[in-house]
C-alpha cells in the first residue's frame, strides 16, 4: 500500500499518459447511444446487489467499469446481455435500452440479445472441441452449414483476434491445449465470429500474464473501430490505457442490515475520471488510497 507521498510521485507519469492519449480521443465525435440504463437496480432474491445505476454507453467507444470488489460492476455488465437471467432469483428494476429497444421487455428473447451482445469471461473457457469448432460454434448454431463459408468466418475471426498465425496449422487440435493468453484470444475470436454489435469483457486479462495482457489490450484497440466494448477491470492502469470513458462504482454499506450494495459513483471521460475526479470517493480510489 503506497503512502500519499509515493502516490503523488507515481501518479505523475500516469497523468501524463492519460492526457497524452486523450488528446486524440477528445477530437472524436460523440457516437450514437448503444446502451441507455435508467435507474437500474439489481436484486438477487432479497439481496440488493446494485442500486440506481444510470449511464449511457456510446458506439465505438471502450467504456471501463472500475471499482473495488463487490461493487457490482460485473453484475451491471451481465445485465447488458441478460446473462443475469441464468441466476435463479435475479431481478432487474429500472430499464435498460439497447439502441432504443428495451432489453427487459416481456417480448424480448435473451437468445436474440446475446447474439448481438457478446461476452468474454474472466477465466478463458474454450469448449472441449477443436479450435476450428470453437470458433465455428456460434455461426453453426445460427444456421451456417456451408463449409467454405465457415472456413472463411473462422479465418476472419481468428485474424481479428490476432490468433490466426499462431494456430492456422493446428485448427483441429483441441482448444484446451492453448496457453492462457491464446485461449482468451480464442474466446474473443469465438465471440467475434457471430459478428456482434457489442463485446462485453469481464476482467478478460485478470487470469493472464502481462505479455498476454498487452496482446489483448492491443487487440481491443484494433477492434474498437468495429465494435462497442464495455470492459470490467480491477486494473486502473488498464482502464487508462484502453478506455475512452470510465464508470467508477463503489460499495454502499448499510450498517443496520449489514449489507453491501453497489452504486455508480461517477461516470465520465477517462481522462476526467483519473485527472480530475469530481467525487471524493473517486479521487480516493484512483489515487490509490482506497480499494
Amino acid at each position: 500500500m503506497e503512502t500519499p507521498e509515493q502516490n503523488i510521485v507515481t501518479n505523475l507519469p500516469r497523468l501524463e499518459t492519460a492526457i497524452h492519449v486523450d488528446a486524440e480521443r477528445a477530437e472524436a465525435p460523440l457516437g450514437a447511444t448503444v446502451f441507455d440504463a435508467q435507474s437500474v437496480s439489481i436484486w438477487y432474491s432479497a439481496f440488493k446487489a446494485v442500486t440506481n445505476v444510470s449511464l449511457t454507453i456510446h458506439e465505438r467507444e471502450i467504456t471501463a467499469f472500475i471499482g473495488p470488489s463487490g461493487c457490482g460492476k460485473t453484475t451491471v455488465l451481465r445485465t447488458l446481455n441478460r446473462m443475469n437471467d441464468l441466476i435463479p432469483g435475479a431481478r432487474v428494476e429500472g430499464d435498460v435500452h439497447y439502441r432504443g429497444e428495451s432489453l427487459y421487455a416481456a417480448s424480448v428473447s435473451p437468445i436474440a440479445v446475446r447474439r448481438r451482445i457478446g461476452m468474454v469471461f474472466q477465466k478463458p473457457n474454450p469448449f472441449p472441441k477443436s479450435i476450428y469448432d470453437n470458433v465455428a460454434y456460434g455461426p453453426r448454431i445460427n444456421g451456417e452449414r456451408n463449409k467454405a463459408k465457415l472456413d472463411e468466418i473462422v479465418e476472419k475471426s481468428l485474424r481479428g483476434a490476432a490468433l490466426w498465425d499462431e494456430v492456422k496449422d493446428r485448427l483441429n487440435k483441441s482448444g484446451l491445449g492453448l496457453s492462457g493468453g491464446q485461449a482468451q484470444r480464442l474466446c474473443i475470436a469465438r465471440t467475434l465470429a457471430v459478428e456482434p454489435d457489442v463485446v462485453l469483457m469481464d476482467e478478460p486479462c485478470s487470469a493472464l500474464d502481462p505479455i498476454a495482457t498487452g496482446a489483448i489490450e492491443d487487440l481491443m484497440h484494433e477492434i474498437k473501430s468495429r465494435y462497442t466494448i464495455v470492459i470490467v477491470t480491477h486494473n486502473m492502469q488498464q482502464a487508462t490505457r484502453v478506455s475512452d470513458r470510465t464508470a467508477f462504482y463503489s460499495v454502499l454499506r448499510d450498517e443496520k442490515s449489514d449489507t453491501r450494495t453497489g452504486v455508480l459513483v461517477e461516470y465520465g471521460r477517462t481522462e476526467q475520471i483519473f485527472n480530475d475526479p469530481r467525487d471524493e470517493r473517486t479521487k480516493a480510489y484512483v489515487t490509490g488510497r482506497m480499494g
Binding site: 439502441r99 432504443g100 429497444e101 424480448v108 428473447s109 437468445i111 436474440a112 440479445v113 448481438r116
Partner: peptide
C-alpha cells in the same frame, strides 16, 4: 436496428 429485432419467440 429493425424494430422488434430483439423479439423472437422461444424456438419450438
Amino acid at each position: 436496428m429493425p424494430a422488434g429485432a430483439l423479439t423472437k419467440k422461444r424456438p419450438l
